[in-house]
Design a protein around this nucleic acid. Structure first.
Lengths: 205, 205
DNA sequence: TCGTCTACTGACCAGGCGTTCAGCGCGGTG
DNA sequence: CACCGCGCTGAACGCCTGGTCAGTAGACGA
C-alpha cells in the first residue's frame, strides 16, 4: 500500500516541526529553545507539537536522530567508496564539512547533545539515545582504520582513539568555520586535516 | 597593606561559591544548574550569592575565568619550558590531560561555554567574555607553532588552524577519558596524540 | 443542509526559576 | 547591658516554562 494522504500530511508536519526545532535551537541554544518558539517557527500551535511528540525530550531526540542519520549516510558513503585510504579519508572529511555547511543549524544540537543535561534520569535517557550515535560513528571509522592497518597502510595504533581524533579534528574545524565570517574554501581545510593526520606536522628531512 | 580579615572571609566565600557552581554544573549541566542548588552545595543561602555576584550570568562568567586561568597557567608553563618542540608539545598535552583529570568537574562548563546560550544579547555578552579565552589559547599555541616553523622544525602550515587541531585533539581525548570507567594511563594517550600529530598516521616506508 | 468526526488551537495551569529585601542573629562598642 | 552595624537569610514575588484539554473550524458523508 502506498502512502495515504493522511500519512503525507503527517510526515510533512513532523518534518516542519523538526526543521523548526533545529532552527530555533541553532538560534537560542538547546536550553533556551522553547516549545512556544518552535511552534511559531513551524507555523503551528504549541499543542500541535504534542500530537506528534510525547514531550520536549522526544522532540529533541527524534530531531537529532533524523538529522544525524543524514550525516551518517553521507560519511558512510564516503568511507565505502573505492580508492586508497587517503582518498577515502579525504572524501569523508569533505563530506562532513559539506554536510555542516549545508546544515549549519544542526551543529548546535550536535554539540549540545555530546554532554547530556538535566537530572540524573534525564541524562541517562539522553545518553541512551545520543551516545550510540556518536559511538557508531567512531566505530565505523575505527573499522576502516583497522583494515588499513592490517593492510600495512597505517601504523598500528589504537583504532578507536585514532577514529576519535579523526572525527574531532574535523568537528573542531567545522566549529571554527561556522564562527568565521569568511572561512577559507572547504578544500583548503580538508587538505590541511588530511595532510596533518596522514603525514604529521614535522618537516620531512 | 596585607589582607584584612574581612577580605579573607570574602575570598573564601567567593571561592566556595565558585567551586560549588562548578560541581553543580558538572552534575546537572549548564542550563539545569539552579542558584538554589549551587547555594546549598556551597552551604550558604541563595541570597548570599547575590552579595558576591550581580546575577547568574556573572557567577558563571567569573567562575569560568577563574578556572580557565588556572588551565592557562599550567599550559603556558609547559609551552614556555626549555626543550625541543616535541618535548614542549608533550608537556603541554600532559598538562592539559592532568588539569582536566584534577578538575574534571570543570569540563562541563568549559564545553558548554563554547557555544553561547539564550537570546541574542546574552549570547553577545557570553561571547565577549569567553571567546577571548579560547582565542587566547589558540593564539598562544599558534605562536609556538610559528616559531617552530620559522626554525624549520615544522612544515609551513597555517599556524592558527594547526593550533586549533592541536588543542581540540586533546580536548576530544579528555572528553573520552571522562566518559570511560577505566581510562588508559594518561601517558599512553599523550604519546598517541603527540606521535600522531608529529608523524601522522601513515606507515613510514 | 445538517450532523459528525478529527486535526488543530491557544488560554490555562502548576511548578520552578532567578532575583529581591525586610528582618534576623551576633560580634563589637560605649 | 543596650545598642548598633553588618553579613546573611529564606520567604515572597513575578515571570516564564512545559504540558493539558475544552473548544473550534472545516472536511466529509448522508
Amino acid at each position: 500500500m502506498t502512502k495515504s494522504k493522511e500519512d503525507v500530511v503527517q510526515e510533512f508536519r513532523i518534518q516542519s516541526i523538526q526543521e523548526a526545532a533545529i532552527r530555533v535551537i541553532s538560534r537560542k541554544g538547546m536550553a533556551s529553545a522553547t516549545m512556544q518558539e518552535i511552534a511559531e517557527e513551524a507555523g503551528v500551535a504549541k499543542g500541535t507539537i504534542y500530537l506528534y511528540f510525547r514531550d520536549r525530550e522526544e522532540l529533541v531526540e527524534k530531531t537529532f536522530e533524523t538529522a544525524i542519520g543524514e550525516l551518517h549516510k553521507q560519511v558512510d558513503a564516503a568511507l565505502d567508496s573505492e580508492g586508497t585510504f587517503e582518498e577515502r579519508l579525504r572524501a569523508m572529511t569533505t563530506a562532513k564539512l559539506a554536510f555542516f555547511n549545508e546544515n549549519r543549524q544542526f551543529f548546535r544540537l550536535y554539540h549540545a547533545l555530546k554532554m547530556p543535561e538535566g537530572n540524573a534520569s534525564q541524562q541517562r535517557r539522553q545518553k541512551r539515545t545520543c551516545q550510540p550515535q556518536f559511538r557508531a560513528r567512531v566505530e565505523r571509522v575505527a573499522r576502516a582504520l583497522k583494515e588499513a592497518m592490517d593492510a600495512g597502510e597505517l601504523r598500528p595504533l589504537d583504532p578507536n582513539r585514532l577514529a576519535l581524533i579523526l572525527i574531532e579534528t574535523s568537528t573542531a574545524i567545522v566549529l571554527e568555520r561556522l564562527n568565521e565570517d569568511a572561512p577559507p574554501p572547504e578544500s583548503e581545510d580538508v587538505e590541511l586535516i588530511v595532510s596533518t593526520l596522514l603525514r604529521g606536522i614535522t618537516m620531512p628531512k
